Every structure is written in structure tokens, then in C-alpha cells.
Amino acid sequence: MTGERRRGYAKGRAKREEILDQAMAMFGEAGYRGASLRVIATRCGISHPGLLHHFPTKESLLLAVLEHRDAVDAQWLEEGRPTGVDRLRRLVGLAELNAGRRGIVELYCVLSAEATAADHPAHGYFVERYRDSVRTTEVSYAEARAAGVLREDVDPGAAGRQLIALMDGLQIQWLLGDGDTDMAGVLRAHIGAQLTVPF
């Protein structure tokens, strides 16, 4: 591959990343239905057809944004393959990370609410995402139980579902309260009360 061709690919990748960043912001501000591809293109300094060259449909752009952000978070969550209590700690760390990423939190809150409609293009994505989130959190609680550090009266299945619901509810409170909700602190206290060891 020639140097000129490599530069072209690098430039294309950089523009694609810029489109994803601007689309994430726009979907967070206006939701999927209210977001305009033309406005996203203008924010990126390209034409509408130029944006469609990278993402042929609004749906493909939405799914690319969601998959990109999930891939980044999954890599961080799974680094070192934490299990049990260590993985629950990592979820608290994710809440701390999200406290510095208002745009991403807004994006997920808006889109997950919109996607409850069966005809929304991200409906299947969010159904699968919640299923995976609950399942992996249940596994973490089950691993904590197997290690002998989960209180006897805590059911791993119920605890996993409750923790995901608590995380989502805290995000909404945080967004509506101008960021004054200590998401990580509340999660830390909640999980700590379920364990027989310091958290």
C-alpha cells in the first residue's frame, strides 16, 4: 500500500470517528427521531452525500454509534477479566467514568427510552444489551456467592436485575439534578450492604 493510500485511509477513519462523535451528541440532544443527518453532516464540515458515503442510512449511523461506545466500555470493563466482587467494583468504576461523560449518559437514557417502541431501529439492540447486562451482573453475584462473600439472603438473579435498574435510575437522577447525584457512591453503598466483606 502506498503512503498516499495509507494517508487516505487514515483521513477516512478520522472523519468516520468525527461523524460518530457528532452523531452521538446529536442523538443525545434530540433523540433518534429528532436528529437530522444534514445537521450532523454540517457539524462535521461535510455534505449530506459525504456523510452517506460513510453511513448509508440514519439507522446504520445510530447502530455504529451504539456499537462503538459499547466496544470502548466493554474493553474497559473486561480488562484483566475481573470476576465476582472485582467485576462489581468495575461497575462502580463505570459509574465514576460516566460522571465525566454527560453526553454518553444522555444518549443512552434518551435512546433506551425511545427504543421501547418495537419499531425503533435500536429496539433489538437495547433488548439484547439489557439481557447481557443483567446476565453478566447475575454471574458476578453468583461468583461472589461461590467465593463465600455474598450475604445468604441475597439472591444473585434478583440482585443482578436490581443493580442494573439502580444504575439506570441513578443516571436519570444525575442528569436531572445537574450532576449532584453521587452515582458511584450510591452503588458502592448498595453493593457493600450485600457483601460480607468490605467493598
Rank of each mutant, 00 (worst) to 15 (best):
101 R>A: 13
148 G>Q: 12
187 L>S: 12
159 A>R: 07
152 E>L: 06
117 A>C: 11
154 V>W: 03
179 G>M: 03
120 H>K: 03
101 R>L: 10
77 L>E: 11
110 V>L: 13
72 V>Y: 00
123 H>D: 03
140 S>D: 07
71 A>C: 05
136 T>W: 00
188 R>V: 10
150 L>K: 05
101 R>N: 07
134 V>T: 08
94 L>A: 05
121 P>A: 14
173 Q>A: 14
146 A>D: 02
90 R>A: 11
190 H>D: 06
165 A>S: 15
149 V>K: 07
153 D>Y: 15
109 C>V: 13
164 I>G: 09
153 D>K: 04
122 A>Y: 00
72 V>E: 00
161 R>T: 15
91 L>K: 10
123 H>G: 11
162 Q>M: 06
113 A>G: 09
178 D>T: 12
105 V>P: 02
112 S>C: 12
118 A>Q: 09
79 E>W: 10
125 Y>R: 02
83 T>C: 13
163 L>K: 07
163 L>F: 06
165 A>W: 05
79 E>P: 11
108 Y>M: 13
185 G>I: 02
75 Q>L: 04
74 A>H: 12
112 S>P: 12
70 D>K: 05
162 Q>Y: 12
186 V>A: 07
182 D>P: 04
184 A>P: 03
116 T>E: 15
130 Y>T: 08
114 E>M: 01
170 L>N: 00
154 V>Y: 08
162 Q>K: 09
110 V>H: 14
152 E>Y: 09
165 A>H: 09
77 L>A: 14
143 E>P: 11
84 G>K: 08
99 A>W: 10
144 A>M: 14
138 E>H: 03
131 R>F: 00
151 R>S: 11
95 A>M: 06
121 P>Y: 00
137 T>L: 03
113 A>P: 11
103 G>L: 11
124 G>N: 12
